[in-house]
Design a binder for these strands. Structure first.
Lengths: 264, 264
DNA sequence: CACCTCAGCTTGTACCAACAAGCTGAGCGG
DNA sequence: CCGCTCAGCTTGTTGGTACAAGCTGAGGTG
C-alpha cells in the first residue's frame, strides 16, 4: 500500500515538527522549496501543507510562508462560583492574559430587545415568538482581535426596565445585577461542544484554518425558572474550559496555568 | 470588492443549504455539474465545495458525491455523580444511543503497565520517569466505528495488583472499583478543549474533514491526592458535554435530548 | 530622520488535462 | 434467488502554467 504523494509531504513535515526541528512560530520551508526537495510539483506540496494546516499544526500566511503552530490556550474557570469567588477569578483572568503578554484587553457590551427565536424560547422555557428577550452581547477584544463572544438572553419579565438593559452600569456582571434585583442563580446547566467556524466567524475571530470554535451554552435557573441563557463562542486554540466538581478543597480552586489538553 | 470564484461557489451552496434546499443527508450537485452551472472549472468548483466541507456543512464521499451534513450529537452528562446516580445515567447513555438507532454498541478495554510520561506524572502529582502507571484504555464502538476513546491513568501505588488491572472484572466502572478499595473520589478537575484530529485519528474515528475532536481531561482527587487521570477523545459532531452546577433540583438531572449547541 | 515606493519573494486563485480509485447498480451466471 | 463481475459515474491525485495578491525590506526622497 503506497501512500499518496501529498500524504508523504504531510508526513515529512509532521515528523520534522514532532522531532522538534522547528520551534513554535518558526518558519518552515516554502511550497517551492519543499516541492523541489521532495520531487513533487508545487500543487502537490501545497496540498500536503494544507493537510498540516487542517490539523492545526502549522499556520500559513499569504506572502510570508508557513509557520509552526504555537497554541497557547487560556484556561477559563467555567464552574459557577459564589459572589466573592467569582470576583477573585475575574481579576485572575485579566491577570492571566496580561501575564501571557496580552496588554490590550477591551470589552464591548451591546444591549438590544427582540422577540424570542425558537431556540432561545425553548431554553428559557417560554412559548416561541411570544415574549420579548433582553439580549446582552459582550465581546472581548485582545490586541484588537475578537477573543471571545458572549450573548446572554434574559426574559423581559426579569430584566425589562432594570439596570440589565443599560450596558454602562454593569461593572459587577450579570450575576451580581440579578442578585440585586432579588433573583438567585441557584444552579445551571452547561453544554459544551465544538464545530468549525464559518468563514465570517473565522474572519471576526481572526482564526486560521484548522482551528475549531468552542461553544458553551449555559442556562441558569432559580428552582425550575430559567433566569438567563448565555452562549459563548471561543476559538479553541486560545481557550480551554475548567470545570471543578465535588467537594473541592479551598486551596485548589485556581487553575494551574501549565495544564493544557493539547500537550501530548 | 469582488470575491474569488471559489468563494462564490461556496456561498452558492451555503445559501442553498441555509434556504433548506437540501434535506440533511441529501445529495448535492457534483463537481462537474456545479462547475457547468456556475461557469467555473471543475478544479474551482472542487475548491469551493471543500470550503463547505471544512466548515462541516457538507460531507464529501469519494465515488458518491457531496451530502448535506447531519450532525446528531449525543449529550454526555459530564458532572460526576454519586454511586446510584452514575448507574442511572450509564444505562441512560446506552438507551440514548439505542433510541438514536445505534444498536451495535461495543466496549473494548485494554490494560497495560508503563512508566509515567511527563504529562501524566504532572497530573498525578508524581516525579516524572520514576513511578509506574496502570493504563486502562477503553474504546467504545458504535456500529463498528470508534465512537469514543478513553484512557485512564492510575498510580501503581493505588491500582497495582488490584481488580483495576484486569479488564474483565470491572463491570461497575473505575469509580466503583476505587470505592471498594477504600478510596473516595471526592472532587475532580476537568479541562475541556477542542482541536482538529490528525489523519490517523480521523481514520480510526471515521471522521470526515471539518469535524473537530473534543478533548476532556479529568483528574479525580481524594483531598490533595490524585486518584486517577482520564483523557477522553470524542468526535465533536457526535458528542456534547453536559455540566450541571450549583444546587440542582432532583428532577432536573437528566439531559434534554433536544438540546444541541449546533442549532442556530 | 521619517515616509514612501517598489522590487522580489511567497502564497492564492484559476484553468486545463489525464489518470487513479471508490462506489453503485445493472446484468450475467450459477 | 444469490453472488459475482464490471461498466459507468463520481471524487481523488498529480503535473503543468499563468497571473493575482499579500508581505517585507532595501533604497530613494523629502
Amino acid at each position: 500500500m503506497s501512500m499518496s504523494k501529498k500524504t508523504l509531504v504531510a508526513d515529512h513535515l509532521r515528523e520534522a515538527l514532532a522531532r522538534g526541528d522547528f520551534e513554535p512560530g518558526q518558519r518552515l520551508p516554502g511550497e517551492e522549496e519543499l516541492a523541489e526537495e521532495l520531487g513533487v510539483s508545487r500543487a502537490t506540496a501545497r496540498l500536503g501543507m494544507r493537510l498540516l494546516q487542517d490539523e492545526g499544526r502549522i499556520s500559513i500566511v499569504a506572502g510570508r510562508g508557513a509557520f509552526a503552530a504555537d497554541p497557547r490556550p487560556i484556561i477559563h474557570l467555567a464552574t459557577p462560583l459564589s459572589g466573592e469567588d467569582s470576583e477573585r477569578f475575574e481579576s485572575g483572568y485579566r491577570a492571566h492574559l496580561r501575564k501571557a503578554g496580552h496588554l490590550d484587553v477591551d470589552e464591548r457590551v451591546k444591549v438590544s430587545l427582540d422577540t424570542m427565536r425558537a431556540k432561545v424560547a425553548r431554553r428559557l422555557g417560554e412559548k416561541p415568538g411570544s415574549g420579548l428577550v433582553v439580549i446582552r452581547s459582550s465581546n472581548r477584544y485582545v490586541d484588537g482581535a475578537l477573543w471571545q463572544s458572549q450573548i446572554t438572553y434574559l426574559p423581559f419579565g426579569i430584566a425589562g426596565g432594570t439596570v440589565l438593559m443599560s450596558p454602562e452600569h454593569l461593572n459587577e456582571g450579570v450575576g451580581a445585577a440579578l442578585r440585586e434585583l432579588g433573583f438567585h442563580e441557584e444552579w445551571n446547566r452547561d453544554i459544551v461542544g465544538a464545530r468549525m467556524p464559518s468563514t465570517s466567524e473565522a474572519e471576526t475571530f481572526r482564526m486560521g484554518p484548522g482551528i475549531p470554535l468552542l461553544l458553551q451554552e449555559r442556562v441558569v435557573y432559580q428552582g425550575e425558572r430559567p433566569l438567563r441563557f448565555t452562549v459563548t463562542l471561543m476559538p479553541a486554540d486560545r481557550h480551554q474550559l475548567l470545570y471543578a466538581g465535588g467537594e473541592v478543597p479551598e486551596s485548589s480552586w485556581l487553575p494551574d496555568p501549565d495544564v493544557n489538553v493539547f500537550e501530548r
